[in-house]
Design a protein around this nucleic acid. Structure first.
Lengths: 122, 122
DNA sequence: TCAATATATGAACACATATTCATATGTTCA
DNA sequence: TGAACATATGAATATGTGTTCATATATTGA
C-alpha cells in the first residue's frame, strides 16, 4: 500500500496526505452500513414525517387523528406512515377499522432529541 | 374549543379522538422549528455526506483527501462540503492553498452515533 | 350480502437534489 | 506578473421524492 502516489483513484491532486487517506479509508465502515445510516436519516429529513414522529412521541394515534393534527389529507399521511413503518420507526395495532400508530423504538426519541438540541443550541 | 366535531380542519373522518388531537396540537413545537429539524436531518440523509461526516469524524482533512477516500471527484465533494458548512456541521481553516475541513459540533457525533446504534440494534 | 367507514395503494405530476462539466477564484512560488 | 495548483461555483441533467387523485382493501353492523 502507498507505493505510488497516483495509486489513489479518482483524485487529480498532486499533493495528498497519504497516511491520513489510508487510515481513514481503513476505519470506514462498510459501504452498505453507511448507506443504511443515510437511509435512516432520510426518513427524519422531511417535515411531514418529523411532525408525525413528534405527534406519536406524545401519544398513540390513528391515521385520522394524525391527519387532523397536521392538517393534511389522509392519503398523504398514510403514505408517510408506510415509510415510517418500513424503516422500523413506527408500529401499529388494529382495533376494528382503526389503525393505531406509535413509535417503535427508543432510539427514535434519542435521535430526535439530539437533533432538537443541535437546532436550539446555536 | 372542541365545540363542534367538524371544527377540526381538513379531516373527513366522522370519528376522531378530539382530546388527543387537541392535546397533541397544543404540544407541537412551532412549525418553523420542526422544519429546521427536518432540514438538519436531511443533511445526514445522503450517503456521500454521511461518508464525509464519518471521515471528518476520524480526522481533519483537505478536500483532496476526502475525494480520495470516497473515490469521487473534487467538485462533487466541494458541493457537499458547502452544504455541511452552511448547516453548521463542518468548519474549515485555510493553510495556503489548502482548506482543511473538520466537524463543527459535538452534537454531530451524538446524532451520528444514535443513528448507528439504531442501525446495528435490529 | 351490502352499505358505510378507515385505511392503503398505484399512477401521475411537480419539485427538489446529487453529480458532472466547464469555468472562476484565490493562493503560492518563480 | 504569470504559471501551477487547490478549491469553489454555476448551469445542465438525471434521478429521487412528496402530494394528490382515483381506486382498492378490510372491517363493522344492518
Amino acid at each position: 500500500m502507498g507505493d505510488k502516489k497516483q495509486g489513489i483513484e479518482t483524485c487529480s491532486c498532486t499533493i495528498i496526505h497519504e497516511d491520513v487517506v489510508h487510515n481513514v479509508k481503513e476505519s470506514m465502515p462498510r459501504e452498505e452500513k453507511l448507506y443504511d445510516l443515510a437511509e435512516l436519516f432520510k426518513v427524519f429529513g422531511d417535515s411531514t414525517r418529523i411532525k408525525i414522529i413528534y405527534a406519536l412521541f406524545e401519544s398513540e394515534m390513528c391515521v385520522c387523528d394524525i391527519a387532523a393534527v397536521l392538517g393534511m389529507n389522509l392519503s398523504a399521511i398514510s403514505h408517510q406512515l408506510r415509510i415510517l413503518k418500513q424503516s422500523g420507526l413506527a408500529k401499529f395495532r388494529r382495533e376494528g377499522k382503526i389503525m393505531y400508530y406509535s413509535l417503535d423504538d427508543e432510539h427514535v426519541m434519542n435521535i430526535f432529541q439530539q437533533g432538537f438540541d443541535h437546532i436550539n443550541h446555536k
